[in-house]
Structures are given as C-alpha cells and as structure tokens.
Amino acid sequence: MFEARLISATILKKILDAIKDLLNEGTFDCSDSGIQLQAMDNSHVSLVSLTLRSDGFDKFRCDRNISMGMNLGSMAKILKCANNDDTVTIKAQDNADTVTFMFESPNHEKVSDYEMKLMNLDQEHLGIPETDYSCVVRMPSMEFARICRDLAQFSESMLICCTKEGVKFSASGDVGSANVKLAQTSSVDKEEEAVSIEMQEPVTLTFACRYLNAFTKASPLSGQVQLSMSADVPLVVEYRIQDLGHIRYYLAPKIED
C-alpha cells in the first residue's frame, strides 16, 4: 500500500508545471524515504531529477517500494480538477496498475477521486556523480527567469560567465547582442533577493536557451535558484521545495566542434 498526502494541491500543481514541458511521462519511484523521479527529456539533452522526502508529506506510507509510470499530460488533467486549497492524497495498492488522486476541500464537504492508469516505462536511469563545482551562483528565481526570457530573443544559445566579480549572461545573434551582469549583493532586505557567488575557478559555458527557459517553469516553487557549473560538464539548476525536497535540472553544454 502506498499513500502520500499533501495539505495543499498547489505544490503538486507547481511541481507538475515544472516538469511537464520537458517530459511527456515519468516514473515516480516511491520508497519509505519518499518519492523520486529521474528522467531525460526526449532529445536526451537535459535530465530532470525530483526528490520529495517522506517527512515533508502530511502523511506518508509506503509498505513496499513501487515505481509508478505516469503520463504527465494525464496527470495534469487530473490536477486541474483540484482546487489550490484542496488536500491531495495519492494512493496505490501494491502491484497495482492504477493510481488514485483524492482531493478534499478544506471543510471536507467535497471529496473527489480520480483514478489514472499507470504505464510501464522503459526508462534509463543515469548515475549522477558527486561533483565539486567551480562556481555556485544563488540568485532570485524570478531574476533568472527574466534573464533567460530576455536573452532567448537574441540567440538560441546563452553564454554564462562566472568570475569572482559576478555572473554575466550573454547572447548574440542577427539582431545584435545582449549582456546582463549581476554582481554579488552586499546587503539585502530579504534573503530571497540576494545574489551570491562561490567561486573556486572562473567558468564560461554555453547552453541552449530553450532548455533554460523550460527549467524556469519551476520558479513558483522557490524564491531562489542555484546554478552549479564546472568547465565542460552539465550545468545544474536547482530549485529547493521548502520542507519537501528539490528539483534539479542537468543541462549538457554546447561545445566547440
């Protein structure tokens, strides 16, 4: 028996919004430590890794490890049926071929359940090595989203250059060129507004704007985003989900021929 309850459906809607543009389907691996999903996008350029810890749920029970392959478009249809303040419970029997989403209104007067067929997905699992990154940038997630949106107008690719002075995002194309420089903030009213840079070595890398823009769909999950970079390895874009876990996107760089 698997059962996981979240007080608010909003968080699950936001998580789905953060992955459904990149993935058509995904396997949710459930164990007593929580729920994990790892999947590459269709073109195998990026990897999504979602971790939701069991202690972040209002209720969590997982008697046996189960892997639930879900069509994310179908899941989105179901989650549209939940109000933001509904409690959501995800339930499945051991070895079941369906999963049930139950939504309860705050006054418990409306209860709906939606059963969805599970899929057998033959997905490759990738081992992600522990890496000490040369540069780790933390910045407001909305600022990162804004920069990705703005620079995507100029080119398919964006250069991210990180030094101890700051981080620079650049794009150039037929229209012209764009550069956005962010310096580390000295003092801020709110922690969420801070830009911080931990640098061992300066790094310059090139990435596809399309994927960076897809990652920023996770912005509603967290006020801050963390970018981890080292030369010639995938960028990690991480959004922490308060008290519940995180979503990490790995993006392969573009390299010189």
Partner: peptide, 14 residues
C-alpha cells in the same frame, strides 16, 4: 560553431 551535447555523454547508465 558549437554543438549541443547529449546528457548521456556525461552520466553513466545505471
């Protein structure tokens, strides 16, 4: 000219 790499070039298949 820069070429887009695949994420599979960096992580081993488990």
């Amino acid at each position: 000219k820069r070429t887009q790499q695949s994420i599979r070039n960096y992580f081993n298949v488990k």
